[in-house]
Design a binder for these strands. Sequence first.
RNA 1: GUCCCUGUAGUUCAAUGGAUAGAACAUCAGCCUUCUAAGCUGAAUAUCUAGGUUCGAUUCCUAGCGGGGACACCA
Length: 559
Amino acid sequence: MILNLIKEKIAKTFNIEESLFVYPPNNKLGDISLPLFSLAKEREESPNSLALKIKEGVLSSDVFIDIFERIEVVGPYLNFFINKKYLISETVKSVVDSPQNLFHNNFGAQKKVVFEYSNANTHKEIHIGHLRNIVLGDSLVKIYLANGFDAHPVSFINDFGINTAKTVWFYKNKKEKNIGLCYSQAVAELEKNSDINKEVGEIMSDIEKRHGENYKLWQETKDLSLLDFKKVYDILDVDFEKTYFESDLIDEGLEIVDDYLKRGIFKKSEGAIIADLEDYKLGVLPVIRSNGTALYPVADLALANRKFQDFSGLKKSFLVVDVRQSLHFKQLFKVLELAGYQNDFTHLSYDFVKLPEGMMSSRSGNAVSFEFLFEKIVERLSQESKKRHEDWSDDKILENSHKLAVAILKFEMLKISPNKIITFDIEEALRFEGFNALYIIYSLVRMKSILRKADFDFSFADLDRLLINLKEDLEKNICLNILKFSDVIVGAGKDNDPSEIAKYLFSFVQLFNDYYQRVNILKAEEETMRARLVLIKSCIVLIENAFSLLGIKTNIEEI
RNA sequence: GUCCCUGUAGUUCAAUGGAUAGAACAUCAGCCUUCUAAGCUGAAUAUCUAGGUUCGAUUCCUAGCGGGGACACCA
């Protein structure tokens, strides 16, 4: 890639660490820059005189003769201005000819990794907290794939807890068919009348024994719940290679517990079975309740096993789970380590989604369900579309609004760093201005519309000759930013943070909109027009690639 | 009490230890006979406090203050 090649060349020639290069805060200062503080210290020289020396060296070397327009020394900084023609033509050609070189690297060396996410509970509704999890996991898998990892998405579904029994109880007694509503309403009933707990306990016991009427109802409600999940996954266009169920893992987990008990990793305490991790300052992990029933870690232990069985050669297992379970995972990983696991487990935590009025939970029933939010956004988008396109059919409006709503929701969840709480304000989300997927899609659709109107056949374009016509500073700046995308992909992977892609994408489109406003494309002189069309095509490829790393599809032609 | 995260503009978020701390929303002032104005331009406004490390700290360290979370039978 061009920027890396340039940095590498300079670094090699002058024996400098390649990582010392930075991008200047604004493009008036240069395209790439080398701050010389540390190097000057090492070489016992003043940064400024060292900068001047290197500058002379670069200028006198014929390797760099066509690459740089000029080189400036500003105090301790050495600022390189890349030749405009060279930068533009190299960039556009590589986007058009070999985009995989720009949008894909082999940083991960095909290391096999698994991402476990969307660890939803059946018998509960999917709310916007889960949405963050699903969208984050999906995006991370895509970013890791782009970084050359062999990444696989799996999901672990919790279908066996006491919450399922509560839902069954409500379903059975109140004839409520909407499973999502059953749980929160059951919790409310239980609070009013604690006698119900006994019934719920009996239901749970039947479920665990796997027979009788209650077990049947459990299966029935589970299936209904899974249908609801499927609906959401389809809307969000996410898919898992494997889905693990707690109910399938529990027996294997119990065997492991026995084994660990024998090996002294677990012990009995106060009637329960625990892992005592006080020595590691990790407190105590309860595994089996004093009444003999299994707790969450039992399934986790079995799942750790399964994943390495199912994905042979697996090097690393990522678990995308809410930050509130950090301690739990530290404990679990410590237990696995004590049991002799050599494998690498990493908890990718993210903070929760709260409402402006406070915390959200499916227990209290104040959660904003995915379905509700999605419909609300579709509705608002449809209203707007109708205003703009009186000639569009209702079907077309609805279809477009659906696509947009998915993009908007995903972007809302991903544009903020995972370790920040998202305060989800529905009014804010319905405003569609500024740092928002709609802004980007709107611009993208305008770009596509220009290409449609131009009706230009790219396959016959003689790029070398054509690109000479791109003479604007903005055109160079756009190309420079296209090139920076490679670094963004690597960074987002290293930091496990898709928001870096979202932020980059937004600022890139801002830059393009500036260009769009200032420069005429279809009205430009013939050759300039064609060159600009090729540039726009490159921008479209970039934007669609960036969006795809966020799991956002861009199959929208009009808006 | 212990541990984890966090504190930047009126609000929501940015800023690999580096140059003039950036956006978006809201506010104010402008731009549609012109490739889709869900757009663009301009104005105004900010690093919790005190120390330390460093040539250089919003960033790293220590302490304090504020916010959130987790800490044995929830997941």
